[in-house]
Amino acid sequence: MINKRLLIKNLLAHHTENSFFDKKQQLNLHTLEGKAKFLKHVCSLSNSNPYNQSFILVGIEDEKNTIMGIDFYDDSHIQNLLNAYLENPPQIQYENVIFPHLENGMVVGLVTIYPKKGKCYFKKRIYTIDEGASFSRIGSISHPEYHTAKINNSEIVDSILKASVTNLQNTIDSVLQFVTKTHPDMKPKYHVFKEYFTLCWAGIEKVKKGEVYLSRVDIELINEQVKIFYSALDEVSITFNDDEFIITEYVKIGFRKNNRYIPFSVQKIIFSDSMTYQITSEIIFETPEIDKRHLYHLYNYYTLILNKLSQHKRLGLTEQNDLQNLCYSLMLCYLHGFKKAKEVLINHKEVFKNYKQPFLYTSFKEVMRILRKLKYETQNE
């Protein structure tokens, strides 16, 4: 099994950007421009590596190879983006890789592009990239034309992967790190599946009607140094048996004291006797029925508060308390047909980011994550 943190270190230590490896400080898949750039890089790496895996590292400062880290990115449906825009798309995997020196919740994104023969090209236009366009990787540059791969990177990629195999020392050290240093105050737990896979998790426990729920949940697959799940706000329940680890996520819906948590998704990590695993994800969210007049009130009320924040006007005490539900309430409006509600959220991203208390920006990111997952579940984009 590959230790993904070792893999990233080996790539950074021995190789500058080349025809099988790229690095980015961040991805922005909220915009068409960001999606287009990501698709272009995947297309070029795929065309130039038909016999071996290729990689994109996210959260790396370019000039000095400094590991800056990015926010945890939960996107189990990112393959749908490729399928929507690319003809002959490769299979890709996005993983959140743990580096202990980064702030809690920060990771390095690892995009693995699996080899696929044949030309990969755009089957429809996105941003400034036309239908039919194709790209190839020449050195560290993505060129806007298709070239048959002239360099076979299989040997060098295989050697990097072999040097990145996990070992018992790394596994034990990582479990101790998680239990004693990362989350010592959150009742961390671990379980070994199939006498091989070690999973650690932690969260703040809450008991409601006899059921145990967790918030601020962190779940890591230790063998691969991959963060499987991270949520700063949402409620989560966890169950497991000999073969499966099941995560049920709930989202907060409501206004002031009438908040309630609704099941949003079920994610399963399924371990097999052949020392492999797979992760499945299913959206189970059903938009609750809410009186239209109440939704109009929420929309108008929170857009008024946002206008005040944008203009640096002072908020009343009630308005300050209601900021806890601002992003979730506008999400609820969007799900009930208020299409501008999502634009309002995105347009105020910098306002959230610069607010004196971090919870507002955290809730914005959580809402964007939820809407992205709902979009990929219901569309091919």
Score class of each variant (00 low, 15 high):
V108Y: 06
I151N: 10
N170A: 08
K194M: 10
V108T: 08
E381M: 13
H41Q: 08
S363E: 11
T287N: 10
Y121F: 15
I262G: 03
K116M: 09
F245I: 07
Y328N: 15
N354C: 10
S134K: 07
V107C: 08
N47V: 03
G105I: 03
L323H: 09
N18A: 03
L168W: 04
N325Q: 13
K313A: 13
P184C: 05
T66E: 15
N258S: 15
S310H: 11
K4L: 07
L12I: 09
V108N: 04
L317D: 04
R293K: 13
N18Q: 10
C200E: 04
I98H: 04
V179D: 01
S159G: 03
I141Y: 11
M331S: 08
E343V: 04
L102M: 08
I78G: 12
P50N: 12
F364R: 09
K268D: 01
D234G: 02
Y73K: 10
C333F: 06
V207R: 12
V212T: 15
K339E: 15
T362M: 10
G203Y: 05
L295S: 02
L323V: 09
F352L: 02
C333N: 01
D71F: 09
E95P: 00
L161D: 03
K292N: 14
I222N: 10
K123L: 09
I60Q: 02
L7E: 03
T180E: 12
S134A: 12
S136K: 07
I283W: 07
E366S: 14
K308F: 00
